[in-house]
């Protein structure tokens, strides 16, 4: 009976993604932004039932991705204000809008999270991907640029180490996306135009 219980419970996997949150070693852009996230960004839970006996998976990645991008944006911009909506117009008091209007707004949302265990991929590792949308809005709330970035991670492991391996792959996928946001997003054409308009010198450097 104990063995049966153990076998049944092994079909349901619950993972709260956790990992180290590095402080990026980058020069901040001399601008202030309002940082907007969907309300469920910090509580996002991915639920999926895998085919061929892969089990039911519940993956809580909201807390880590929220803390990760807060740290990233704090390093990427000189000033960051968490906000609920874009715009600095009258009547916005009480909705997260502060008295000093930032230079622009960045709206970050998770479009998709996906993972693949070794049993389904035929490879020897767990792989995970995160797809984020980064929207740039000017001080008036008009969308200037929409950029989608996909982060990818993988980690060898399986069997009894499946949750640890998936955790590591997911953290790597978030880090990968974050690295591309830090290094590539400021070089996007519309972003550079916006930076030029508000008087920021942003020399593009080739991506390594």
């Amino acid at each position: 009976m104990a063995l049966l219980c153990a076998l049944l419970s092994s079909c349901a996997h619950t993972l709260t993604v956790s990992g180290r949150i590095p402080t990026p070693l980058i020069e901040p852009l001399p601008v202030s932004i309002g940082f907007i996230r969907p309300v469920d960004f910090s509580t996002h839970i991915h639920r999926e039932k895998l085919p061929r006996g892969g089990g039911d998976w519940t993956i809580e990645l909201g807390a880590l991705q929220n803390a990760f991008f807060e740290t990233l944006f704090d390093a990427l911009f000189q000033g960051v204000q968490p906000m609920e909506i874009a715009g600095c117009g009258a009547g916005d008091e009480g909705r997260g809008v502060v008295a000093s209007c930032p230079d622009g707004f960045v709206r970050l949302s998770l479009l998709e999270y996906a993972f693949l265990p070794p049993e389904l991929s035929g490879l020897q590792f767990f792989s995970a991907s995160t797809k984020y949308q980064v929207e740039l809005l000017d001080a008036g709330g008009m969308v200037l640029d929409t950029w989608v970035v996909v982060g990818y991670g993988k980690n060898e492991g399986g069997g009894f180490q499946s949750t640890e391996a998936l955790n590591a792959a997911t953290v790597e996928a978030i880090r990968d996306a974050g690295a591309r946001v830090a290094l590539e997003w400021p070089k996007q054409g519309n972003v550079r135009t916006w930076l030029d308009l508000i008087g920021v010198k942003n020399d593009p450097k080739p991506i390594m």
Binding site: T23, P24, L25, Y152, G178, A179, R180, I207
Partner: peptide, 9 residues
């Protein structure tokens, strides 16, 4: 050294 030594950077 994040983000300079990630897999793709």
């Amino acid at each position: 050294l994040y983000p300079w030594f990630e897999s793709r950077t």
